[in-house]
Every structure is written in C-alpha cells, then in structure tokens.
Design a protein around this nucleic acid. Structure first.
Length: 246
DNA sequence: AAGGTTCGCAACCGCCGGGCT
DNA sequence: TAGCCCGGCGGTTGCGAACCT
C-alpha cells in the first residue's frame, strides 16, 4: 500500500531508547488530563520528543494504571499455556484473559520461561506436540547422571533424592506420552478425528475456554491424558533447569 | 575481584487490517 | 476502488543485571 513508516519524517530528531522519569511524567500528565486521543499528535501536545508509537507502547506496556507487576502466578502460567495451545502466538488475545498483564509481558514470559519448560518436558512449544527429535532425551540422561552422581556423593541428601525423583518422573512421563500418542493415533483413526492435535487435550486443562467446542478426543481419554500432563507439569513446577533462574 | 557469559525485559521495527476520504 | 492514515500486533534487538568461572 506504499505507506511510510509511522515515524519516518522527523526520525533524526526524535528520541529513542529508555524513557526517563520526566518523560513518563509528561506522558502520564497529558493522558490523565486529556486522554490519549490521537497518538500521532500526542507527543507534540504533551511536549515529548518521541514518536506517537513509542508513546503508545510506553503507555500500554508500562504506565497504564491497571498493569499488574511482579511474577506470574502458577494459575496465570497454566492459563497462558492453556490459551497458547488454542490461540497460538496471539499474545494480545491471550492478554485479554489475564487482567493487568500486557501482551508484551506475556510474550516475554513465554519466550523466557514457559518455552524452556515445555522443551524440558519434551514438548514442542509451538505446537505443544511431543518433540520429534531426540534431543530432549538429553535432559533425561543429564538428570540420571546427576542423580547417580548425587547419590554417590551424598546418598541421603535431599536434592539428590529430588533429582532422582525428577528423573524417574521424566522417564515415566515419556513412556506415558509415547503410550498415549499411540492410543490417540488409534483413537483418531477409529473416530475419523478431524483435528490432528492429539495433545491439545493434554495441555488444555480441565476448564475448557471454549466449552462449546467439541473435544477432539473422548472424555475418558481426555481425563486420562490430563492426568499425564498434570503430573508432568507438576514435576517441573519445582524443578528449575540451570537456565531458569528466578 | 575481574572478566566473560547468560538472562530478562523494555523498547523498537516492520507489517497488517480497518476506517476514512 | 484506490490511496492514505492510524492503531495494533508479533518478532526481534539491545542493554543492564545477575550469575559463573
């Protein structure tokens, strides 16, 4: 359509980068008294040397009064995973289900935490299906090595026991995953399933967002699978991989 | 203690869709 | 109907903080 970028005209003079407290105050003052109105003209009226887009982002992601700060709760985390399995990378849509959280915040949280968690669980983050490569088995071998080393060094130390438990849990999950994968393939074949997404039920949780949408798999299978993923997720709740420092 | 590496998050970039003329 | 403008979205980047060696 040949449109120019939103801030192309005076780019050389417009400030970029982190916002100062003074700029924040100007933006807040202006919006509190006038509302944001037209973002394009807002910076000029507010006395800011920023492009409208930058102002809008700053407001939407940081200054809005209803923004909730701090760590995501387990409930929020589960909800995000749940929603992502249905909506994909529609961060703004996902954000509408989490009051006080911005799409940017959710996107960042997904990329830095949940993505890794799913990978550790042997699931492909984009599809929520089991990973087809065998790289995730490295997690298992690492855990088993850690467990063996830990028990050699200090057999009664609680962290060594926990690593052993984690390794056992991961192995169990893997076996169950493989079993349910086979089962779902069979089930899908028998039912002529239209949705090639056998793990949607695993991830989705008990409270379906779209209750009017028929489940792709029988309820019995769904509830059984749910147990698998609940165990699996729970086993990783307490386990922080080295790249998941809090 | 210092240098290197990794992580987390705020902010930017470019594209898209809807509304208006 | 085409062109323009604006707001919104998702992907990516840059940088300070935290951690590791």
């Amino acid at each position: 359509m040949g449109r120019s970028p939103c801030c192309s005209s005076d780019d050389a003079n417009l400030k970029k980068g982190p916002w100062t407290p003074e700029e924040d105050e100007k933006l807040l003052d202006y919006i509190n008294t006038h509302g944001h109105g037209n973002w394009k003209t807002l910076p000029k009226h507010a006395g800011l040397n920023r492009c409208g887009k930058s102002c809008r982002l700053r407001w939407a992601n940081y200054l809005r009064p209803d923004i909730k700060r701090g760590r995501f709760s387990e409930e929020e985390e589960r909800l995000i995973v749940n929603l992502h399995s249905t909506l994909g990378n529609k961060w703004s849509k996902i954000a509408t289900y989490l009051p006080g959280r911005t799409d940017n915040e959710i996107k960042n949280f997904w990329n830095t935490h949940i993505r890794k968690k799913l990978l550790n669980m042997g699931l492909e983050p984009n599809t929520h299906k089991p990973r087809t490569d065998l790289n995730h088995l490295l997690n298992l071998t690492q855990l088993i090595c850690a467990a063996q080393l830990g028990s050699l060094m200090n057999p009664w130390e609680s962290s060594a026991l926990k690593v052993q438990a984690d390794a056992a849990q991961l192995l169990q999950n893997l076996i169950q995953t493989l079993n349910t994968n086979q089962l779902s393939t069979i089930t899908a074949g028998l039912m002529g399933s239209q949705k090639s997404y056998p793990y949607e039920g695993l991830i989705n949780g008990t409270s379906s967002l779209y209750a009017d949408e028929p489940a792709p798999v029988p309820q019995k299978f769904h509830s059984m699978s749910q147990g698998v993923i609940d165990n699996s997720w729970a086993s990783f709740e307490g386990y922080e991989s080295p790249d998941m420092r809090s």
